[in-house]
């Protein structure tokens, strides 16, 4: 999609992201000057990486449909690779893992075709049935259940979930196939998911006392969770009607989905990392950790938000009468 073809609200929102980043960069400089005793390097690095993430993400919205889909496929690839490198895998399953990787081009090809029916069952049904079959054909039964389970969880989380963001981007309303609600819908999803993370963190730091999940994520509090969700609902109520076809009430509920879903996605990846006894999933994004550390919330918000939107409106998809 060309820049000038985008809705004015979408262009405004992308502009606002960069203004907010510029303000953050200035704030870090000011803080460095005012309080030189404190180590600001990690915050500064985090902000620098945010610039890159925002730049690449904005590009993926402005770029052509194919490039946008390839972008999300690549994110899925990086996430799945990180996951498969972290979890204990069986030596015998090396080739099975290769088959799992092949699910990525296919899943995003269904998105490209707008083939919703295949998109929605390919990983939960076909890959789910195929990979154990391939494992059995190799013949090693030791650790079979765990290998089949961990591999499927990885594909569902890193590929199936993330591909929902790509499908969201190319959605066309049935009654107006020329309209492009996708960029606005994705912007609302991704920006609110990230802001929800930040809001939960800030509320938790300022007024959080009672721990919400002490064994999984000791830093998270009820104050942070509730404050974050409330903030996201308020932001969604304003952003929804501006960026998407949703009205205020529908957008507020989308905000609730993003606020709660984002929290659950975050703590699920935390639980995974705790199980593996690691702190960060990688070092791909300086100041943030790995890809999984950044897309953790999105693994829940993308499919939940997508299906909410999909339920609200009728969309034009492959196989359906136009």
């Amino acid at each position: 999609m060309r820049w000038y073809e985008l809705e004015p609200a979408v262009r405004g929102a992308i502009g606002a992201i960069f203004v907010a980043l510029a303000l953050s960069s200035i704030l870090v400089r000011v803080l460095r000057a005012v309080r030189p005793g404190v180590d600001w390097s990690e915050v500064a690095q985090r902000v620098r990486t945010w610039w890159i993430i925002a730049g690449v993400f904005s590009f993926s919205i402005v770029a052509s449909r194919t490039v946008s889909i390839l972008f999300y496929a690549f994110i899925s690839y990086l996430a799945l690779k990180e996951y498969l490198s972290l979890i204990p895998t069986r030596r015998a399953d090396r080739r099975v893992l290769f088959w799992a990787y092949l699910a990525i081009p296919l899943q995003f090809f269904w998105v490209y075709c707008e083939w919703y029916g295949m998109f929605i069952i390919f990983i939960p049904v076909y890959m789910f049935l195929l990979l154990p079959m391939r494992m059995v054909s190799i013949g090693q039964t030791d650790g079979f259940i765990r290998a089949a389970g961990t591999l499927h969880w990885g594909l569902m989380t890193m590929v199936f979930s993330i591909s929902h963001a790509a499908f969201l981007l190319i959605l066309r309303l049935k009654e107006a196939p020329e309209s492009r609600p996708g960029p606005g819908l994705v912007l609302m999803l991704v920006v609110l998911t990230e802001l929800n993370d930040i809001a939960q963190f800030v509320w938790g730091k300022t007024c959080g006392k009672r721990k919400i999940l002490p064994t999984v994520s000791p830093g998270k509090t009820w104050g942070g969770f509730l404050g974050g969700v409330a903030t996201t609902v308020v932001l969604a109520t304003f952003a929804g009607p501006w960026l998407t076809p949703m009205n205020h009430r529908q957008a507020a509920f989308a905000g609730l989905i993003i606020g709660v879903g984002g929290f659950v996605g975050d703590v699920c990846i935390s639980a995974m990392k705790r199980d593996l006894k690691i702190k960060d999933s990688g070092a791909l994004l300086p100041g943030h950790g790995g890809m999984l550390d950044r897309i953790d919330s999105l693994t829940y918000t993308a499919p939940l938000y997508f299906h909410y939107v999909y339920w609200l409106y009728l969309f034009h998809t492959h196989g359906a009468e136009p």
């Binding site: 690839y77 690779k81 990180e82 498969l84 090396r94 080739r95 893992l97 290769f98 990787y101």
Partner: peptide, 11 residues
């Protein structure tokens, strides 16, 4: 690994 021709991505 030794003896394999198929590259499977790992970090």
């Amino acid at each position: 690994p030794k003896g394999e021709r198929l590259l499977v991505p790992f970090f």
